[in-house]
Simulated scan of single mutants.
Amino acid sequence: MLAENSEIGVRADGESGHAQPGIHATSAALAAPIAELREQWRRRQAWHRAEKALTLQAKALCRRLAEGGDKAEADRIYKAALGTGSHQMADVALAAIFPLTEARDGIAKHRATVEKRLVKLAKVLPVAPWVEETRGVGLLSLAAIVGEAGDLSAYANPAKLWKRMGLAVMPDGGRQRRVGGVEALDHGYSPARRCVMWNLGACIVKAGGPLKAVYDARKLYEADRVETKAHAHNRAQRYLEKRFLRDLWSAWRRASPC
């Protein structure tokens, strides 16, 4: 079995074979936009969580209106209340959920404004042209990574960035994951950061291009090693996500002024 790290060009000790050792300093000119980007990203995430919470509350109210609390009927009531389809309880449901959906729509509007600002901030980063040329990746994705990881110059090698984003291989050979107890600190796993990379990987797979070819090759490799196609897909997409982060880290170092 080939080690996952070695296949992506990182030695077992976590150092990249082609990278300069140590921290690569970013110019002071980038400190302010990166700091604002991180704050704006935290705001965006908080508002996005609020939107989802309000949606769940609205659906819970609709479930109370459904016969026997049936979830499928509750979904139909919810959609009918918002104007999609019809249901005899649609008007009652709309009256019940309107304050929630109104608040959610207001948050969504402001979130969209924050996302526009995030794109503008990401565009000033030296690595932005490289990102824009990568199929399946946009400036908002770059903003998400920097928002979660901060200045990529602070990571001495790709393996450290992988760990920050939930993609590390732990010393025992297992994958970084959510754990409890004393192991939690070593894993340092964040579902939110892992979600950023999973969504990005899915976009790259859908978009096609050179990185999709990397995914396809890896999926064929994994197909003989796992029991299901779903497992092969998951492992191949994870490999793709790590490859992208490695390439982004390298492009950042090349583009950032010393």
Rank of each mutant, 00 (worst) to 15 (best):
A3S: 12
N5H: 02
R11A: 15
A12W: 07
G14N: 03
G14F: 09
G17L: 03
S27Y: 10
L37T: 07
Q40N: 00
R42I: 03
Q45K: 02
Q45A: 08
R49N: 02
A50G: 08
A50Y: 03
K52N: 02
T55M: 11
Q57A: 12
A60I: 00
R64A: 14
G68A: 05
G69P: 14
K71Q: 09
A74M: 03
A81R: 10
S86Q: 11
M89A: 13
A95K: 15
A96Q: 06
E102W: 02
A103G: 06
I107D: 04
I107M: 07
I107H: 05
L118I: 15
V119G: 10
K123L: 06
W130I: 08
E132A: 13
T134L: 14
R135M: 15
G136S: 14
V137T: 12
V137D: 02
L139M: 15
S141H: 12
A144S: 13
I145K: 00
G150I: 01
A154W: 08
R164Q: 11
G174S: 15
R175F: 07
Q176H: 01
R178M: 11
R178F: 14
G180W: 06
R194T: 01
R194N: 08
V196P: 01
C203T: 08
I204Y: 02
I204T: 10
G209R: 09
L211I: 11
E222K: 05
E222D: 02
V226S: 13
T228A: 08
T228M: 06
A232L: 04
A236L: 01
E241Q: 14
A251T: 12
R254A: 13
S256V: 15
